[in-house]
Simulated scan of single mutants.
Amino acid sequence: MSASMRQKRVLVVDDDRLNRKLLHGMLANLGHDVVQAESGQEALDLLNESIDLVMLDVMMPRMDGLACCRAIRADKRFAELPVIIVTTLSSREDRLKAVEAGANDFIAKPIDLMEVRVRTASLLKMKESRDAVRRYQDDLEEMVRVRTQALELALDNLREQRKSTVTAYQDAIHCLCSAAEFKDEETAQHIIRIGKMCSLLGSRLGLSRDEAELLLHAAPMHDVGKIGVPDAILLKPGKLTAEEWPIMQRHASIGARILGQSASELLQAGAIIALSHHEKWDGSGYPGGLSGTGIPLYGRICAVADVFDALTSRRPYKEPFSVDSSLDIMRKGRASHFDPEILDLFFANLDDILAIKDAFRDEPLPA
């Protein structure tokens, strides 16, 4: 049954039994369910959210009607519950006190049925409207809560799917890079070190967290173009001839072509690094002979990390240099091979660079 159709419950509070009986008869005749209390405290004990209206006598022992009305209003559940004061008091001052206590209306004794009908009908209609608004608000809040939960669940699922997709994407790229590195007899640890070193340098250079994260995953692609270099040249233990060297240099362009076919921000960054990490500050690098800040920033960062790692690692054509020897070689390349600002930053963060090298060191070759 809807709230508007159900029988209304009226709490009648009066210490006089005859007055209660009279009001009970009138209200029952109007179709209401009547609850009786003979004191203010009993009324408070009986009061609950099923009550639609309180008719409250003023002159009662111990707790009078005004004190009872104030107690009703003190409970936030009944802050808007209609209260009618039934009283013989009729002065302006008495009525003001009743209003201050929280009363909505007055009925004077002796009680008149027509007055009871009109005043109760008005206040019950007001409560019915307020209850309808409150139910609508509650329903709206519940709908918002349910839809918010559904949206959050959908977003969580989307984030998980995206995370899984990105992870699979990065794994595929890592495998591609590893294939190139293994072909060159380098290691998977090498590409991890390059990514972490480049990300560190980018972060310390002031790049955003997102850009540093991009470098972490894009820098390992720097030598992916070695897949396209013949093994006889790539794995040659000695110095390359004048004819072989241009073929070896093609790996930068090959890598850029492989990666540049995708619209992915990550692969586009990898293509830039692949193409530019062998360029030199003084313009003597390859494949484009770029110089200074004409070399993309990601390529300049990778050049420093890659040379350091190459110097300190074993290659088919050399044994690893010591860290001190490698650092001396790199110092000599300041402002000729390397961007001086990035090289200075490399040395300023050398402890962290060496920590990365130590954490991801190459596994010893089998005996």
Rank of each mutant, 00 (worst) to 15 (best):
M1Q: 07
Q7M: 11
V12C: 01
V13R: 00
R20I: 10
K21R: 15
K21Q: 14
L23F: 04
G31K: 06
V34N: 02
V34F: 03
Q41V: 14
L44I: 02
L53G: 03
V54R: 01
M55G: 03
D57I: 02
P61M: 04
P61H: 06
R62M: 10
M63K: 12
D64E: 06
R70T: 10
A71L: 05
A74F: 08
A74D: 12
R77V: 06
E80S: 13
I84C: 05
T87P: 02
T87W: 07
L89A: 09
S90G: 14
E93V: 13
D94K: 04
D94V: 05
R95E: 11
V99Q: 09
E100W: 03
G102V: 04
I107R: 04
I111Y: 04
I111M: 04
I111V: 15
L113R: 14
R119F: 06
A121P: 04
S122W: 08
D131C: 01
A132S: 12
Y136D: 10
D139R: 13
M143P: 00
V144Q: 14
T148Q: 10
E152K: 11
L155R: 13
L158K: 10
R159Y: 11
K163L: 08
T165A: 13
V166L: 14
V166W: 10
Y169I: 00
D171S: 12
D171R: 12
A172K: 08
A172S: 11
C175Q: 15
C175A: 15
S178C: 11
A179W: 12
E181I: 07
K183F: 08
D184F: 14
E186M: 15
E186Q: 15
A188C: 12
H190S: 12
G202P: 01
R204W: 02
L207Q: 06
E211Y: 11
A212K: 02
L215M: 12
L215P: 03
L216D: 05
L216P: 00
H217A: 06
A219F: 03
D223Y: 04
G225R: 01
G228F: 04
V229P: 01
P230Q: 05
P230C: 03
L235E: 05
K236E: 07
K239H: 13
E244V: 03
R257V: 12
Q261P: 01
S264A: 07
E265H: 09
G270M: 00
A271N: 00
A271M: 00
H278E: 06
K280W: 08
D282G: 07
G288K: 15
L290Y: 07
L290E: 00
G292M: 05
G292C: 03
T293W: 09
I295Q: 03
P296E: 02
L297I: 09
Y298A: 13
I301F: 01
C302M: 11
D309I: 00
T312Q: 01
R315H: 08
P316C: 02
K318R: 14
S322Q: 01
V323H: 04
S325A: 14
I329T: 12
G333W: 06
D339L: 01
E341A: 11
L343E: 00
F346I: 02
N349E: 12
D351N: 09
D352T: 07
L354P: 05
I356A: 04
A359Y: 07
F360Y: 15
P366Y: 05
